[in-house]
Design a protein around this nucleic acid. Structure first.
Lengths: 329, 329
DNA sequence: CTGAAAGCGCTAACAC
DNA sequence: GTGTTAGCGCTTTCAG
């Protein structure tokens, strides 16, 4: 067994209350006592038991993070911001890989509750009513990261509609007129619909028609980028540009075009979305919409832990120009 | 305040002991009592407090994972195996992004101790003596994943020397004779030295000389792949193949060669190491050494939690042939 | 400035 | 079958 506060107290010849005060920086002891106690602690290698502490404080200094997949570049970048900020504030983070599975998510929610986490961060997933109800019942603070909900839950995200509007407008400015859209999961109210609206608004602002053959749905993954680009090119060979709603799909599109000997950006321009690490690794390096994913992660923990803060934050996006979009003259 | 076991007991008209027994599947109550209690629990939405429970059992059903960076494809793949298996066994996982920083790592080790985790997983980093001593002092079980140490600590990893030997031999079999090595961090006893030995052994088995101009060090990252490939090609323009000690460096090499109009694999063949998700996304898709990263993650938690298991495991590797290595006739 | 003692929510003897 | 009770390691009144 490891030493307890009692052992320290006995060894230092004081009461546990005094040791506790010293440990917690509370007033009420002489310099001399403190020195003696600290010395004993050092010698014994005593470390307080956060579990016992948590039982009293009702605070565990740990937060739970639910995300679709830890091995996803997008989510892991957000996670890394969360982790850094949590560490900064002396919190620990428990990860829960939901796999987008409802049953699994509910299991995690219960586990987090039982383990008395101080709050929950929900990354980039749709907040189902079931989840929302559970969290409310548990009375746990929660904030959504890179997603929103129809409920009154704090969130932090970018303006997806505007981001795609800006991206497509950029392509339009480069002279492209036949622009395809490789959208996300069909019907997704968070990451697909607003982005489609942005695409449509951009085209309309240039007096262009929105044509169904120029829109294809994917699932944000690489493989769907390959098949999506293929569908797009076959449905409309006159396309000179494709806006992809994730970097991974953009990489898939790049792969497909390469396999068909279609030169990027000379024949077809490609644009991605997210600016994950892979955007600079593609060939050619990917022009994409940057979202401050890491920063969003950081701020989300601040929001979560300081409930007096504002209820939602829209983070700025920008266009990172690399080499997959060229001017069309 | 949420309900406690006392509330349930009172409401159900039984004692807390009985409720506890029912909750823990211990014998000692009638079917009727159980039904009544379960019903009350359902109505109140009672959930046990794992913190209180942990104070008694001395087990928290959570493990700590230390890794260099959560946003790293390699580590996050291992992490995802860990997470899945932990979830399977009803454990939670706390992540600690060490950033390869000694001070930060020590802080995490202390936090994990205070929070009474049941064990520690240490992914792909060098176990410094300082860390080892701390973990021993804390009397916590630990297993190393994708790394080893000079200490007597259980580990699970691949055979790096053999993996590179096999990879380079594969290139040799394809007819290549001038093969460069893009190694990892210079001096790294885990991920660089054994791999260099494998490279050398393969060459020697073909009666070839090991030439210093054909070896360059990197840091496993993309950028060092770009610069490393450049250095290699400039130092020896006769090179027809490069073995890279990580997929990311291989991607960097691919980028550099593309920028120089050097065709892969027609002019230069490239091979990676790890088989992370990005290996299938490069152009052309990367031929690489596969390590069962996800599986290693899964098994590491089993090892950690069942200390009677064997002390170390060497996982099998294989060569995943894609399109970056061609035959040289 | 310091100590005694009452819990936090739960489990595990030990009685009955 | 079921209840009483003594802690787990710690914080926090409340006395002194």
């Amino acid at each position: 067994m490891a030493y307890t506060i009692k052992d320290v107290a006995k060894e230092a010849g004081v009461s546990v209350a005094t040791v506790s005060r010293i440990l917690n920086g509370l007033p009420g002891y002489s310099v001399k006592t403190k020195e003696k106690v600290m010395q004993v602690i050092g010698e014994m290698g005593y470390q307080p038991n956060a579990i016992a502490r948590g039982l009293i404080n009702k605070r565990t200094k740990t937060i739970g993070v639910l995300l679709p997949a830890v091995s996803d570049l997008f989510a892991s970048l957000v996670l890394s911001g969360i982790e850094d900020q949590a560490h900064e504030l002396d919190y620990s983070v428990m990860i829960c890989n939901t796999d987008q599975d409802g049953v699994r998510t509910m299991k995690y929610l219960h586990a987090l509750r039982e383990k008395q986490v101080d709050g929950i961060l929900f990354i980039s997933e749709q907040l189902k009513k079931e989840y929302y109800d559970a969290v409310i019942a548990m009375q746990l603070p929660m904030v959504l990261v890179a997603t929103t909900s129809p409920y009154n839950v704090p969130f932090i995200k970018a303006d997806d509609e505007k981001a795609v509007y800006d991206g497509v407008t950029y392509m339009l400015e480069q002279g492209h007129r036949a622009i395809g859209l490789l959208a996300g999961t069909k019907g997704d109210p968070i990451a697909t619909e607003p982005r489609m609206k942005g695409y449509e608004r951009a085209l309309k602002s240039y007096g262009l028609l929105v044509e169904q053959k120029r829109i294809v749905y994917g699932d944000f993954g690489f493989a769907s980028g390959v098949t999506g680009a293929e569908a797009l090119v076959k449905q409309d060979p006159s396309l000179t540009a494709i806006f992809c709603c994730s970097d991974e799909m953009a990489a898939g599109a790049l792969s497909y075009l390469y396999s068909q000997n279609i030169a990027v950006p000379q024949q077809v321009s490609i644009m991605g979305y997210d600016d994950t690490k892979m955007a600079e690794m593609t060939i050619p390096p990917l022009t994409t919409i940057s979202q401050p994913l890491y920063e969003m992660g950081k701020q989300s923990v601040t929001m979560l832990l300081q409930q007096e803060e504002q209820h939602w934050i829209i983070m700025p996006h920008s266009i990172t120009v690399r080499q997959t979009v060229s001017a069309r003259t």
